[in-house]
C-alpha cells in the first residue's frame, strides 16, 4: 500500500531558556493512504511535536535536527516556505485541541471557511465558494447550516466549533488530516458525536487520518493501527486488535492495566504505573520507561532498546526483553512474540 506520510529518524529539539529539550528522539513511522493511525502517549511523549514538525509549525524554539518527512514523495523538511504553505491546509490539514482559540471571533464562521477555500484556490468564484462552504457545513452535520453561516464563533458551542474546524480542515480535500487531541476539551457526549462524524467522513472521503490522543478508548473506537510513544520515542506499533489483545511493551501493558473498564470487577485494585514520566530536559540514557518499568534490567538503563519487528513487519516494539539475545529464564516475555528481528 502506498504511504501518504513517511517519517524517518526524526529528531526535534526545543532550544529554550532553561536548556535544550530533545522532545522527539528518532521517530520512524508511516501513514498509509486512507488509513486511520492512532498515536497515543502521555503529555511530554513527543506525540504532538512529531506531527507539528511535519508541517514545520514548531514555533521559534523548536528545530528539526535531523530526519526526513516524506509526504507523497516530497521531503517537507526541505521544502521552501511558499510551497509548504500550499501543503499546509491544502494537502495536509490539522485540527487542534482547542476549538475556542482556533477561530477568529470577529469574523462570521462561513467567511472563515470560505477564506480557507480562497487561500488554496483563487480561481473559485464567490458564488461557488459560498455553495461549497454550505456543502461543507452540511457535511459536518451542522444543523440549519444556511443560518449558521452568518453566525459568529461565540454563538457556537464547543462541539459545533470543532465541527467548523473539521469543515475547514476538509475544505480542500486533503490527503492527510492530522487531528491533535480534537476531543480532549469536549464532553463525552460531544466527543462521541465528533468521533462518529470523523469515522463517517473518513469512510466517505478516504482521507488518511492521524489521530493523536491520550485516550486509548478513543483509539480503540476509531483507529486501525496504533503507535505508542513515550519519552520522545516509538515504544510499540501494532494493528489495533493485536495491541489490545497482546501488548508487547511493558509500557503499553501498564497503560492498558491502568485504565478501568466499565465492565471490570470493581473490587480489584487499579494497577497504575508507578512513578512519573521522565523530565525531557534530562532524558534517561537508556529506555525512557526504564525508571518505571517492573521488568527493568541493567541493559535497559544503559542503552536504548532497538526497535524490533514482529509478525512479518506488522508490529514493532522497542524493548530489550523481546530481543533475540535476551535470556529465557526470569523473562516473562520470552517467546511471547515470535520472530523478533532487527529491521
Amino acid at each position: 500500500m502506498q504511504h501518504v506520510l513517511d517519517i524517518r529518524s526524526l529528531h526535534v529539539t526545543f532550544h529554550t531558556g532553561g536548556g535544550d529539550i530533545p522532545a522527539v528522539r528518532g521517530v520512524n513511522l508511516h501513514v498509509a493512504k486512507g488509513e486511520c493511525l492512532g498515536v497515543v502517549g502521555e503529555s511530554g511523549s513527543g506525540k504532538s511535536v512529531t506531527f507539528l514538525s511535519v508541517l514545520r509549525l514548531l514555533g521559534p524554539t523548536g528545530k528539526i535536527e535531523t530526519g526526513q518527512v516524506d509526504f507523497l514523495g516530497r521531503d517537507l523538511t526541505r521544502m521552501k516556505p511558499a510551497q509548504l504553505r500550499q501543503v499546509r491546509g491544502g494537502r495536509i490539514a490539522m485540527v487542534f485541541q482547542d476549538p475556542m482559540s482556533s477561530l477568529n471571533p470577529l469574523l462570521p464562521v462561513g467567511d472563515q471557511v470560505g477564506e480557507m477555500l480562497w487561500a488554496h484556490d483563487k480561481r473559485l468564484s464567490k458564488a461557488d465558494r459560498d455553495a461549497r462552504v454550505l456543502e461543507l457545513l452540511r457535511m459536518v452535520r451542522i444543523p440549519e447550516a444556511e443560518k449558521r453561516l452568518r453566525g459568529y464563533p461565540h454563538e457556537f458551542s464547543g462541539g459545533m466549533r470543532q465541527r467548523v474546524m473539521i469543515a475547514m480542515a476538509l475544505a480542500c480535500k486533503p490527503d492527510l488530516l492530522i487531528a491533535d487531541e480534537p476531543t480532549t476539551a469536549l464532553d463525552v457526549s460531544i466527543q462521541h458525536q465528533i468521533l462518529k462524524l470523523l469515522r463517517a467522513l473518513q469512510a466517505e472521503m478516504g482521507t488518511g487520518i492521524v489521530f493523536i490522543t491520550h485516550d486509548l478508548g478513543v483509539i480503540a473506537q476509531l483507529c486501525s493501527r496504533v503507535i505508542v510513544m513515550y519519552g520522545g520515542l516509538v515504544m510499540e506499533e501494532a494493528p489495533i486488535a493485536e495491541l489490545f489483545a497482546s501488548p508487547l511493551h511493558p509500557y503499553t501493558q501498564g497503560l492498558l492495566a491502568s485504565i478501568p473498564s466499565i465492565r471490570q470487577d470493581k473490587a480489584r485494585r487499579l494497577c497504575p504505573i508507578p512513578g512519573s514520566p521522565p523530565d525531557m530536559s534530562r532524558p534517561p540514557a537508556g529506555c525512557p520507561f526504564a525508571p518505571r518499568c517492573p521488568h527493568v534490567r541493567v541493559i535497559c538503563t544503559e542503552r536504548q532498546a532497538p526497535c524490533l519487528v514482529f509478525s512479518g513487519g506488522a508490529r514493532r516494539c522497542a524493548c530489550w526483553l523481546h530481543s533475540p539475545d535476551a535470556p529465557a529464564d526470569d523473562n516473562p516475555f520470552y517467546g511471547l512474540a515470535q520472530g523478533g528481528e532487527r529491521p
Binding site: C293, R297, V298, I299, C300, T301, P327
Partner: peptide
C-alpha cells in the same frame, strides 16, 4: 558485566 541482571527499581 551483567546486562541482563534485574536492575533495582
Amino acid at each position: 558485566s551483567q546486562p541482563w541482571a534485574r536492575a533495582a527499581a
